[in-house]
Structures are given as structure tokens and as C-alpha cells.
Computed example of a mutant assay.
Amino acid sequence: MDKTDDLIERALSAEDRALLASHGEPGYLSQALGLFRGPQGWVGMLAYVTALASFAGFAFAFWQLWTSDDVLAALKWGVVAVLLLQYAAMMKAFMGTRVEANRTLRELKRVELQVAMLRESVD
């Protein structure tokens, strides 16, 4: 934590700390499974399924490349394998950016909660 976090922590009451602690950062598995929930859950599921299919296609193409005797066929399977592996990696990166976007939204909601608690204490 940095100095700003320490100042915020000292300014909160014990009740506020307990409330914010209950809304803490979930674990990695919970965050990853969160991609499949909510109104955009189908996008996460589609990306995951296509990434799995792409990786399975990569494994098949790589096996065909490895067992091929013809140079031209090996080259064709090699190109297909590289493209499928790149697509699988791109989908994994896409899902990673969605996890980070969800983390940002979660932190924004925590800030909104802190502002609401502050506004309630002033009133």
C-alpha cells in the first residue's frame, strides 16, 4: 500500500473497515469464472469455447505437421498451426482484459460505496 491508502485506512471507522473488507478482492478463480456471468457472460463463453476449439485445432495441425513426409503438406499444416495458436492466444488476452475491466469496475463500486458512506455520515 502507498501513503494514500494508509490515509484512507486511518480515516475510516471500524464499521466502515468491516464493510469494505466484506467487499474485498475475490480470488483469481472467482474472477475468471465471473467472465461467464452477467449480461455479457455469453461473450466470455463464446471466447472461451472458440479458444478451446482453436487450441484443439492447433494440436491436430501440429500433429499433422510432425508426422507429414511431404514438405509442402508440412508447410501448410505449419501455417495452420501457427494461425490457430495465435488465435487461441488472442482470445486468452481478450479474456484477460475483461478480467481487468471487471476489477476496475469493482474498485469503482467500492469508491462509490465509500462516497455513499461518507455522505450518510455527513447527513
Rank of each mutant, 00 (worst) to 15 (best):
M90D: 05
A14N: 13
K76V: 14
Y28D: 10
E9W: 10
L75E: 10
R37E: 12
T104W: 08
A89F: 10
L84D: 02
N102A: 11
A59D: 11
S54T: 11
S121Y: 03
N102L: 09
V122Y: 08
A21M: 04
A47N: 07
G78S: 05
G57M: 07
A93L: 14
L105E: 14
D5H: 06
R119D: 13
L12M: 14
V71E: 08
M91D: 01
L52R: 09
A21K: 09
V80T: 15
D70H: 04
F94I: 00
D2E: 11
A93T: 10
T104H: 08
A61F: 11
K76R: 12
Q31V: 02
G27Y: 04
S13R: 07
F94G: 00
F94A: 06
R10M: 09
G96Q: 13
A116S: 12
A116G: 03
S30W: 09
L83C: 15
R98N: 05
A73Y: 10
L118W: 08
L20Y: 07
V122N: 02
L46S: 03
Q86T: 15
Y48R: 07
W63D: 14
L108W: 12
R10I: 06
M95N: 02
Q114N: 06
T104D: 08
Q40C: 12
Y48N: 04
M95T: 00
T4V: 15
A53Q: 03
E107W: 05
R119F: 11
A21C: 02
V43M: 08
Q86G: 15
A81H: 00
L52D: 05
R37G: 01
G41A: 05
A53H: 00
A89L: 15
M91N: 00
E15T: 12
N102Y: 06
A56Y: 02
P39M: 07
W63H: 15
H23M: 03
M91H: 00
L72E: 12
F60W: 15
V99Q: 05
Q31R: 14
H23T: 02
F62G: 08
